[in-house]
Design a protein around this nucleic acid. Structure first.
Lengths: 211, 211, 211, 211
DNA sequence: TATGAATGAGTCTTCATTCAT
DNA sequence: CATGAATGAAGACTCATTCAT
């Protein structure tokens, strides 16, 4: 599959690295499978095969299946949160910051479709309590980042309709819709991502926020 | 060996009717389970028990599990399409018709969350080819309904930004985002459905379409 | 393995009987395996193989592994209890009844070593709560049968040492010891079962009960 | 290839001593676990964790799991045999020596319930050949200790019933029954251990041996 | 002497599906 | 039209054991 044949074969067993690497390798494989086959389809065996190790081996690095998938989410979401932190501290007007945040959100999601889906598209009905709790928390945490800046705008009396919470949720939802559809319906003849993102966000901000 | 043929057929279990009714009955039961437990949770056994027949019996009416769930989707989507048809023929301006369509779309999705999810949130990569094809077709068909009316608006030169396709996709995506988030994140403290729907759609239309 | 080749082969699947028989057949096979390999060694697969069916098939007749083993115990213990009931109602003196009961107990155990072991030799630490409860209840129920008749003897003032409970427990324990050792240590050069049973019981009764 | 010999042995983990001590340490840990969780519950991992070393390490001191557990039994049984040796050499009448031996046997078993169980309650059919052989030998060896003294009594013509072998086996069996029941049925409302032991042994000796 | 990493065989259980009647 | 009985493939997970260092 890769250039394994060129490396000096030291043993029948894999001896790739020292633990830390193997863990990361499993996470990458799990993410690929999860992306391709969904949560239920991402079985321990498939992941193990993809890595090229035994199923048992996964249990040396993760307590159980959930821990693997959850770890994927956590890692991805942290990036998103960090991006929002950076934007928050820029010396810009609130509308501009919201625009940047939403744009970053869309870009992030399109660049990390798998993790995005696990956190934002998975049914809350399915899966263990633990999983629910973690994905829910991640989602909410992320969502809350928009909250402050929208309230700033509201404080300036610039909301055309609705209260801050409603506007905040509507903005988030619209962006989520764009990315989730583009991810799950790739066969649709979508407009250029940047173009449609701009149209959607500009339209929304123009429609909801007064000068 | 088995004198069952001589006994007056008076099934202890069910004597509902012949065939057509049974099929519908299965669909209703399957929908209930599917709504309650999601796709993976809707096992053949559960459905059969809910109907009160043997698992084998389901296979007399449907080829396999997918066919059952897909049939549920098809039925649901037909309602949505029909609603759009009705709206299309109303003697109203195009913007008004778009507003009604989007509103109806959101209401429909919130009222049929599981069918909606199967069609619009499931990964297109997962599942059987048949399922993929069907859900994809249903989704696209539904999406196309918006297309005409947006082009009408564009023909009147009223689009503030973007070409008709982009606007059309943005509108759809925004509504999809609202419903899919409300469905998958019920624990979020959502604004009133009607209020947020109105804010989102009005904001979008105001932002994207000029008078 | 057996004369299966001579029977008219009707189908690749087994079609032995109508459910009731299969259940009994599984119980018999499970008992054989359990006897040979102990509780942990009696795996679902081994039992299924012994019966000649798939593992899955066992789950059509029993909820889980415990239910199988427990059913074996229950059935066996009922025989023992019934024997004691019969003896209780004989018009004999209490010492004679106790002697018969103990003798019957030993004979039963030697004739049903497997079930006996599951109920009386299995560690109370191992296994599910359900299993513990059931085997414990069976054991206690059985043990209690001796209780009444020993109290009768005590009421006649004929106990040489100890209170009724102590004597009762000592009698039971001694018989249990005999059978459990004969079962678990077959390689010991045991005296004739009837002879040693008689010597033990007569010795005990003589030693503990005055004329 | 391995310069470990040149390094100053100063294990970061444990520097308890060299080999002999570690072996003993493992045995103690294994016994704790074995006592708490039974044979099947005493996994290699648990034992290793209890000691604070890796699982692999156990294999440097013992061939396999059985060897560990067997060693525990052997050690325990040696104590019992030693006790019997001491009693044998006391200048007492044979009946008195038998009484002391049986009492010591019961006390020992109640004090070492899990070792006792492994040797005397485990099915001889289950488990590896090695284990069978060892536990069997231990059991028999222990059993034989009673033999001589009972023959002494018989030589004095004091057996009320049965031949020496039968009486010998009956005595042993009764004591085994008491301890094995008390061990496996702790929830029974047992009489005081000393009281019931005395009643059982005195009753038996009185019933089987004439003055 | 000890380890971290890995394995293969095995555990129970559940699922969609099919056969013979 | 419907069933009871059965199946094979797969699920997650655990165990004793063994490499290479």
């Amino acid at each position: 599959m890769n250039d394994i044949l060129n490396r000096p074969v030291k043993s029948a067993r894999k001896a790739k690295g020292d633990g830390h690497l193997r863990r990361a390798e499993i996470l990458r494989a799990a993410e690929r499978i999860f992306v391709a086959d969904g949560y239920e389809g991402a079985t321990i065996r498939k992941i193990a095969d993809e890595v090229g190790v035994s199923s048992t081996c996964l249990y040396m690095h993760f307590r159980d299946k959930d821990e693997i998938l959850l770890e994927i989410c956590r890692a991805a979401m942290e990036q998103l949160l960090e991006m929002h932190n950076v934007i928050s501290q820029r010396p810009l007007g609130p509308v501009e910051r919201v625009r940047m945040m939403l744009t970053a959100y869309v870009e992030f999601a399109l660049g990390n479709p798998n993790a995005y889906r696990l956190v934002f598209c998975a049914s809350p009905l399915a899966g263990s309590d633990q999983k629910q709790q973690v994905t829910h928390d991640l989602g909410v945490q992320c969502f809350e980042r928009f909250s402050g800046v929208v309230r700033e705008i509201a404080a300036e009396g610039r909301l055309r309709h609705g209260d801050p919470r409603t506007v905040h949720q509507a903005l988030w939802a619209a962006c989520h819709g764009l990315v989730s559809l583009m991810i799950t319906k790739p066969s649709v003849d979508w407009a250029e991502p940047e173009e449609i993102t701009r149209v959607l966000i500009d339209g929304l901000l123009f429609g909801l926020i007064a000068d």
